[in-house]
């Protein structure tokens, strides 16, 4: 049975160790995209460090500006990733899906 099953010859080849510059960029872009929600969670947790109402409390307008500012920044960065991903890999979906 060993080796009896037919295999796709492409599968048999070990993946290359070094990637082309474009593939390398693409993967790092994915890494960045993966890190974004962690960054977001951390930034949204920052208000937990603020003192509550009372002496030296944070004004609501500041809180709103901060939360919505972070939110908008996340959206912009995420949209940027979407556009960048589309530009870096025109139509090359298979490679991106195979392995991060």
């Amino acid at each position: 049975m060993t080796g009896g099953r037919e295999r796709d010859p492409a599968q048999m080849q070990p993946p290359p160790v070094f990637l082309e510059r474009q593939s390398y960029r693409r993967r790092r872009l994915m890494d960045a995209a993966r890190l974004l929600p962690i960054l977001g969670a951390a930034l949204f947790a920052v208000p937990l460090l603020w003192p509550n109402a009372g002496e030296g409390g944070v004004r609501m307008s500041v809180a709103i500006t901060y939360v919505f500012g972070v939110w908008a920044a996340l959206i912009l960065i995420s949209a940027g990733f979407g556009i960048a991903a589309r530009m870096v890999q025109p139509g090359d979906q298979a490679e991106a899906e195979r392995k991060p």
């Binding site: 208000p47 937990l48 603020w50 509550n52 109402a53 009372g54 409390g57 944070v58 004004r59 609501m60 307008s61 500041v62 809180a63 709103i64």
Partner: peptide
């Protein structure tokens, strides 16, 4: 300014 002056004018969660 109105927000800051209102009942929920301070960060409190």
């Amino acid at each position: 300014a109105r927000i800051d002056a209102s009942a929920i004018g301070q960060w409190q969660v």
